[in-house]
Write a protein that binds this DNA or RNA. Structure first.
Lengths: 152, 152
DNA sequence: CTAAATAGTTAAGCGACCTAAAATATAAGG
DNA sequence: CCTTATATTTTAGGTCGCTTAACTATTTAG
């Protein structure tokens, strides 16, 4: 129970929206047949653009052997592309394919539909008030130091 | 590219916070050693309070045999309790134990820490603006019809 | 009382995914 | 050139989680 009413409101909002995001995420994972590791890998690539096998393994906290095997499956499913780094031929450059990108975007679609439903219940004045607050939040989150090993 | 600036802002906020929530979630899943199904089951119980084996299987989209086996593991880990329904002795009543609750709350803590960091960067006026907007959002989400089979 | 339906568990088999260890290829430093 | 370090893959072996099918227990309907 935080004393700051702002913190209480923010926590409440995160709680409410987390329930929705989690459901979307879990349902999506099951429907797409992707494991936690797969999703972790695809999202890392989605945000980072490219990375090597060992690097991805570190990120997911598995051995490079495990990462190699998992990536092989993703290659076979056509979700990622694995090419040689011309600068250091020991390294593989992993990138999402168009199909991989589409699979991820699909997981995001359910959230957009939810937002659409939400928007319909709001008046113009309410939208304006919310927009003001969210714009501040977005700006601050962007400048906030990232606790994990990569940036947004 | 939505024409409504409100929708654009809301989508942007969800995008920014989703990145953070996903990372928290995936890291948490790996650290706690829980599979996607485990987490799906625990969260269902967290929100619903109790349910039967087959019911949970339907929710997670697996057979009742799979649900039974998974719940057996969760029982052994002390995360859930499985008792007989006195009204229909074929049915089992599944509930979270205190330990199960603690494990879930732990997954939520990382988010609270992030919010704490965020709060420190805000002025009182900014907090006020954000609070106004979020309170509207929370209220609307609460009254929004749930698309899935359960309520918040 | 008996037959059919329902809830859950158990058993066998399979694929996914992880690890450790060995193998392969490349790079970097004397 | 030779050694050592680095990046990845392959192999062998174990555990997990899923399915189908068979089985037990209980309830419901006739």
């Amino acid at each position: 129970m935080p004393s700051d009413p702002f913190v209480a409101t923010l926590e409440e909002w995160i709680k409410v929206s987390r329930h929705r995001l989690m459901r979307n995420f879990i349902d999506y994972a099951r429907k797409s047949g992707l494991s936690m590791s797969h999703i972790g890998a695809l999202f890392h690539l989605y945000h980072e653009g490219t990375c090597g096998v060992t690097e991805l393994g570190n990120h997911l906290d598995v051995t490079s052997a495990a990462a190699s095997q998992m990536l092989e499956r993703l290659v076979q499913q056509g979700l990622i592309l694995r090419t040689e780094d011309p600068d250091d031929r020991r390294v593989r450059q992993i990138v999402l394919t168009d199909k991989g990108n589409r699979v991820l975007e699909e997981g995001i679609r359910a959230q957009k539909m939810w937002l659409g439903d939400l928007t319909e219940t709001l008046s113009a004045a309410e939208k304006e008030d919310i927009t003001v607050g969210l714009k501040i939040l977005i700006e601050k989150v962007r400048t906030l130091k990232q606790p994990v090993e990569f940036a947004n």
